[in-house]
Design a protein around this nucleic acid. Structure first.
Lengths: 191, 191, 191, 191
DNA sequence: AATGAATGAGGATTCATTCAT
DNA sequence: CATGAATGAATCCTCATTCAT
């Protein structure tokens, strides 16, 4: 019979498996059974490690949000000046989009929970707060808030759109928000 | 004995009830039972009118998206000039936010489905397309796309944030995207 | 495949099966599975007919108590005079004890629930009330209350005791409570 | 590091905790987990100290019954004569009823187990035997048996009834059983 | 045309017990 | 000696869907 091994990583593996399952089937399609199967642990160990499904979801999305904020900070932290920061913002959108299917799904699942339950809203709030602070290393607070919203909107629209979004549009939008004067040959924006 | 009249409202009522249930409990918490109860129809009539749950969800979200796009068009259609259009865009965000809990939840639930299933992605795509065309009555295509993303981002961030978002920030952001020169006393955006 | 027959007695059969299972394994050992198996119905039909286990237990014990009170009334109702009524009371204890294992267990299980939950206390209260009223057809209210308690106590003690209880002791106790003089000829105290 | 002192109280604490849990949730709602939590001991120590749940229940109810019999004996032992003994019997019922919720529940849970399992029936038998012997210090064996049943019945009925039971009824009942003449023309029945 | 009744699969969770440490 | 970790079985309950009426 299978030996009952001491397995200190198990909790972590379960959390990772939970994110995988959520990405693949959505929160609605996530169950203890599926997570346990993916993590390679017996069903009974799920509620041993996590009191309830809600607790598990909370920890999983907390980890996901923290990872996302880490990446955000790293990318912006290495920018030496405002120009590089602008570039970083554009990269954030278009690099995320590359391997985005998973990130997109998880982000939206999290937002959906956050819209209904305060516990999850705290997670998104903390995430947004970290993003904004990272932006504020390069931009004033109001501009940072605008940029943050712009990133969000572009990310979602680009991901949900069927046709690819042009990087140059994003560059332009970032420049307008951060008030880089349009080059002389730009035509008026309104027809 | 029960009437056997043709009841053309019943389908509609079920769809509306479905949206109510989704708003209240999420797609994950939506079931035939709960919708039937809310709509005041017998459980058995659910699968009589809708082949499957997916079909019902599809019709419900299609209606929701159409209604949203209608409102978008109405608000922008009445704008006489670019200034009024800018104002309309700001109103879109801040008026939506007032009674937003329901709209926010339904929007995010739809996006979440769209992120994983093409059927629903088509719905969001059509919605975005109509929004963009409405904007293009007042702004050039590139600016319209930017504005659309900006609206999206501000809407989500304002709704998920705990502290209220200042309308003036939105006004300012719209102005920057639509290239209205900053007023004289504006300070440089970069520190 | 098995045909899905229309089965109007099913609810009743489930209740009876529930009482059987409770008698055999106690409330603690009663489960939907065991009841379903005993009633010969699929597991899924349990919660179709009864919203919850508590509801099922409630209906089952209600039926049990009603049946018990019916028997009580029948036995006392046929007594023509106080002497016959006294005899009926003794019979109640010693006849019940004959096929008592089931009744004893069910009675005690009900009392146990009643001690903790008001819903079940109402059942025992109604049962006691009917018993008392049946006694009051032959005895004054105070004596009826005493007799009711005496019956209860003798029933439980006789059932839980290992050695059989002598019927004559019960006769004597009933006589004392109903104040029959120790002399050979009985003279009823009430009507 | 944790002390490895021999902890002789732990077993006792577990038993007391078990009774608390049974009183609060019933035998059906009693689990190792809940008892361990209440006793403040690690889950693993439960089956270290008690081979099985049944063993633990047995010891817990044995203690409960012994404590009950102790109280019974104390109250009756201090009675100087038959009159005081009668008074003691009434007190037994009405004093027990004051803080009875816990005692009632535990008593009935024990009876319920006893009705089905011989191991527990032995406990109730011993309890009843001690009660009867305590009564026999003041009354003849037959009267003692009647009194014991009367106490049982009054206790249960008073506890399960919603309206309070009058002490005078109990006094009267005890007098009738012990043959105290309620009126001048009644002749004494015993000693 | 419409539906009340029915059901098997699967949901989260609790559990007594085992055992490596 | 004591226990934290682990687990398979069983718990109640919900569900989408089917179908006889």
């Amino acid at each position: 019979m299978a030996t009952r091994r001491f397995d200190p990583d198990r909790r972590d593996r379960i959390i990772d498996a939970a994110l995988d399952v959520i990405a693949a089937r959505g929160v609605a399609g996530t169950s203890h059974r599926r997570i346990a199967e993916r993590a390679g642990v017996p069903l009974g160990s799920m509620t041993y490690h996590f009191t309830s499904m809600d607790q598990l979801l909370g920890e999983a999305f907390r980890r996901f949000a923290d990872t996302g904020a880490d990446g955000f900070e790293v990318r912006l932290g290495t920018a030496a000046n405002a120009g590089a920061a602008r570039q970083a913002v554009v990269d954030l959108i278009h690099a995320d989009l590359l391997d985005s299917r998973r990130d997109l799904v998880l982000t939206l699942e999290l937002y959906t929970l956050a819209a209904r339950e305060p516990v999850f809203r705290q997670i998104t709030r903390d995430w947004m707060s970290r993003s904004r602070h990272a932006l504020e290393r390069h931009f004033d607070p109001v501009t940072s808030r605008m940029l943050d919203a712009l990133i969000e909107g572009h990310f979602i629209h680009a991901a949900l759109d069927t046709e690819p979004h042009d990087r140059s549009v994003t560059v332009d939008a970032v420049n307008r928000i951060t008030a880089v004067p349009p080059s002389p040959h730009d035509s008026p924006r309104k027809l």
